[in-house]
Simulated scan of single mutants.
Amino acid sequence: MANKLTFLLLAIIFISWIPTGVESLGTRTFTIVNNCKETVWPGITHGENFKGSGFALKPGQSAVYTAPATWGGRIWGRTGCSFDSNGNGTCQTGSCGSSLNCTTPGSPPASIAEFTLGDVDYYDVSLVDGFNLPVIIIPLKGKQNCTTVGCDGDLRRNCPAELALNSSGKVIACRSACNVFNTDEYCCRGMFGDAMTCHPSNYSRTFKSICPVAYSYAYDDPTSIKTCVGADYIVSFCSSRNETVCSYHNNVLSCSSPSSAATAFGGWQSVTLAIILMLVLGFCS
């Protein structure tokens, strides 16, 4: 009987040891999805010790980007780009200079997905520098109150005329009031440089009405920044916050739909648990 109890105890210890999240792996996976009807050139910038990236995604395409577990940086989409075989060129919006591979932040206006990863992740979508594409962030496999954030409305259709960036008679982006007027009040600087003195403007309220869970101005924290623990993330352009978006990486399929949120890794853990329990029951019978 003592041997059976010992075996059962070891089995329980083994089950509890099985890793259940990405925090045990030391890296995080970002799946970048283009659900737009146009090609998007995602740009990625981050800390000084991790060089930038950039590439093209045609409509319906996705790409996987792997970063350290304590990564911090920005992901955004560039539009209207033309690059030569050496990766040199220009973009109409979100340009990070003349290179396909971004090593500097994108130029306004651009919708930006921001991340600071660690023991607790902080993430948000910022329209403080303007809007060029709908973009949402979907956490996968995370713990605690991990929620989808971002802007799935298209501000180009509702952009105030004085903020509109036009090309060939078409609104291709919506600039921020700070970018257009460059005043301390709109830019939250000088005597307006803190949360007590910097308040939403009529322009930022327009942004907020269309994108209620994205930053509309610099101190729009309470409804915009979210936290999560140990997640991978989907950054999806032109997707709805309510639709299912999937990530496929290392033979693992993860989807944002609650009914299919379990990953293949989680399924493997459940199968392992079932096998161990069957062995335990057979051994103890």
Rank of each mutant, 00 (worst) to 15 (best):
4 K>I: 15
9 L>I: 14
10 L>S: 05
12 I>A: 13
14 F>H: 03
15 I>G: 09
23 E>G: 08
24 S>Q: 07
25 L>E: 12
31 T>I: 01
33 V>M: 02
39 T>C: 00
40 V>G: 06
43 G>D: 06
43 G>K: 08
45 T>L: 08
49 N>Y: 10
49 N>V: 04
53 S>Q: 08
55 F>S: 08
60 G>S: 10
61 Q>E: 15
63 A>K: 14
63 A>M: 14
63 A>Y: 12
67 A>V: 15
67 A>S: 13
68 P>R: 07
74 R>K: 11
76 W>V: 12
78 R>Q: 11
80 G>W: 06
80 G>K: 08
94 G>P: 10
102 C>G: 03
102 C>I: 14
103 T>I: 13
104 T>V: 15
105 P>N: 11
107 S>N: 11
109 P>D: 06
112 I>L: 11
117 L>T: 10
118 G>T: 09
125 V>K: 04
127 L>W: 02
128 V>K: 01
130 G>R: 06
138 I>L: 13
139 P>E: 10
143 K>V: 04
144 Q>C: 02
146 C>E: 05
148 T>Y: 05
148 T>P: 02
148 T>R: 07
149 V>N: 03
151 C>E: 10
157 R>F: 05
157 R>M: 09
157 R>C: 01
158 N>C: 02
160 P>N: 13
161 A>S: 15
162 E>T: 10
165 L>Y: 04
170 K>F: 05
174 C>P: 02
175 R>G: 04
178 C>E: 07
180 V>D: 05
183 T>C: 08
186 Y>M: 11
187 C>M: 03
188 C>R: 04
191 M>C: 01
193 G>L: 06
194 D>V: 09
195 A>F: 14
195 A>L: 12
198 C>V: 12
199 H>C: 00
201 S>F: 00
206 T>A: 06
208 K>D: 06
208 K>V: 00
209 S>Q: 13
213 V>M: 09
213 V>C: 00
219 Y>G: 05
220 D>T: 11
221 D>G: 01
222 P>K: 08
226 K>P: 00
232 D>L: 08
233 Y>S: 07
234 I>G: 01
236 S>F: 05
236 S>Q: 03
241 R>K: 15
243 E>I: 05
244 T>R: 02
245 V>S: 03
246 C>W: 03
246 C>P: 01
248 Y>C: 03
258 P>H: 07
260 S>V: 12
262 A>S: 11
262 A>Y: 02
264 A>K: 02
273 L>R: 04
279 L>N: 07
283 F>Y: 15
